[in-house]
Design a protein around this nucleic acid. Structure first.
Lengths: 349, 349
DNA sequence: TGTTTTGTGAGGAACGTACCTCATTTCTGC
DNA sequence: GCAGAAATGAGGTACGTTCCTCACAAAACA
């Protein structure tokens, strides 16, 4: 598989090397029917031998097709979702020069019916793909399967919908995130103690997986740790404030809090109002305004983050692969769990 | 700046909107001379108004030019450099469909003259850019400036060469990495103690910056911490083994080690041979075989990592911007300091 | 043997941009 | 008002791929 460094390898060279015509090469390359298996093999052998990769720019140009992706992102006050929406806008600007077309739709948060309605309202002619932050209910699952039949590939984003007909998932391994949080919390509380758990909703699979991961490592690696909760804060200020306040009141001995959901501003306010600021180990998710300020002020110890921008880019890569075929492009790298302390904070991205 | 969703915006539309001819639009877009400032402004206003972005694929196609990048990567046993070389190969395969051509050259490690010779041997006709892992000496600096004059843009990778004519730097903020390491080490050693510092060489600016960052935070935030070293391990097994062994012998009271360089296998072997395995807090750089195994075996507490693959991709983005102009493409995001504990380890990338 | 069916070849027209030549217009300085 | 320079317009070709149509050959059927 030695690759010529000289003039660019084209489909013409490939046809010649395979001993077939350009038309046949094209049929093989684009998976069109009407080619004998033996001939397909000849062409594929030549591709491997020459190390041929089609010119993606020319390919997209000739197709004269833009890749439309609808991003269905929950609205409301959730800061992470706001950052995600921002990332869609930013990445959307960048991909326009690669024939990408992102459309951002904010939908009511925590509302399966609204999500279903949004999915069903999509037009396959305009959007080859949809990226959704899944809510794990049967109706959503059905809507995803239905969209697939209508010709819309659905990619789940941040929160997955396993077992459905989604074309892919872009997001972190939430169980691993929960395990990591537990490992850090265990280190930060060497004398044991009780840790309070907070989530947005137990209907969100990402939050549930985090809690499960946390519990698992806490039980095996740090038997000295006790657990309270989880309580649900609805991923918003008020709900999280109240849930945290009640949790702190019920367990005055708490030595740490792990918020697997959003609503960090409310959580931190409740801690402050209880006069516990700085005396609790706090681990939270997503680097946003409140968590960033919390790190700097020593009110948050560690933030686990998934980069919205990377996630949107991964959706783009996944969608391109769906349209162009898996051979045209390398798959998107898995999204990583980023750990932030006060000292390795990065500038806004 | 409302963007039409309909048919794709082309240079023709742009010409019409600006009230000029296609030729003039072309002259403005590609920075050619012979256009009145007022006309340039008209075109740029139209670009902004329509939100025009040229089709990168068509652009590269018409240019009929491939972007050649030479990667000058140190050879030897350094595992990180091996991963970097691997990333060049992998990313090189992917970018071929975008008219990229990566050439990997392994050069003798820690050898400024070899690096200089490699730079001077580059052919501007073949390589528009060179990515080098810089060694901070005057001769290297001169070679970079010289290459620039010959028409080769040099991008420094991993280790920077500030003040030289390099076209950009791709790598982490090493001082911030050192500060982060110190913050973690301080938390892990709440009772103070002495921390041993190891580097590959004090001639490598990245290692030096890490040490400086570590010292700064240790001094201000953790006055209880004392420091031994740094000792130099030459970024290889034997040197690092001996340097660590001597350090441990000279300071039997050591409570932690921070290796700002490579040679982690040697470092861990020396710890094990001294019978200190598991009793020292160890913070190291770069997620490679030895550090990964060290994490799993509880011999390494934290690994700070820069992703070679991201770095190579960032070089590609930077090089494309150099060739296509800064407006054609968003700049590469800064490389992040990744923190790995046992629990958030990722699969090989 | 003739007639479908299926596989293959030949050729050409897009796609959006770059870059070339040549003609024409508009600005300079005098 | 004129020569000369500078700015602009008009129109073409090329890049590598996709996707057509049409013709022809080889296999399958009767």
């Amino acid at each position: 598989m030695d690759v010529k460094p000289g003039p660019r390898l084209t489909v013409h060279d490939l046809a010649e090397a395979a001993g077939v015509s350009l038309a046949t090469v094209d049929r093989v390359l684009n998976g069109r029917a009407g080619v004998r298996p033996a001939t397909v093999e000849k062409v594929e052998a030549a591709i491997a031998r020459l190390g041929f990769r089609r010119d993606l720019g020319a390919s997209m140009l000739a197709r004269s097709r833009t890749i439309g992706i609808a991003f269905l992102i929950p609205g409301g006050t959730n800061r992470f979702m706001a950052k995600l929406a921002e990332a869609v806008e930013q990445c959307g600007r960048d991909v326009r020069s690669q024939r990408g077309q992102f459309d951002l739709v904010r939908i009511p948060p925590m509302d399966p019916s609204a999500l279903v309605a949004a999915i069903e309202g999509l037009d396959p002619a305009r959007h080859a793909c949809a990226a959704i932050v899944a809510i794990d209910t049967t109706e959503v699952r059905d809507a995803v399967d239905n969209a697939r039949e209508r010709g819309i590939s659905v990619i789940t984003l941040v929160s997955d919908l396993p077992g459905s007909g989604r074309a892919g998932f872009v997001g972190i391994d939430n169980a691993a995130a929960g395990r990591t949080a537990a490992a850090l919390m265990g280190r930060f509380c060497p004398d044991g103690g009780r840790i309070g758990l907070v989530v947005g909703s137990l209907g969100l699979s990402d939050h549930v997986h985090r809690i499960e991961g946390f519990r698992a490592v806490a039980a095996t690696d740090f038997p000295g740790l006790a657990i309270a909760g989880p309580v649900e804060g609805e991923d918003a200020y008020e709900g999280t404030y109240q849930a945290t306040r009640d949790l702190l009141a019920a367990h005055p001995d708490l030595s740490g809090l792990y918020n697997a959901g959003a609503g960090n501003a409310g959580l931190l306010a409740a801690i402050e109002d209880a006069g516990l600021g700085g005396r609790l180990r706090v681990i939270a998710h997503e680097l946003t305004g409140p968590t960033r300020r919390g790190l700097v002020a020593d009110r948050v110890d560690v933030v686990l983050d998934q980069s919205p921008l990377w996630e949107v880019r991964a959706v783009w890569t996944t969608a391109r692969r769906l349209v162009l075929g898996p051979d045209a492009l390398a798959p998107a790298a898995p999204i990583e769990i980023r750990l932030f302390l006060k000292h390795n904070l990065i500038a806004e991205d």
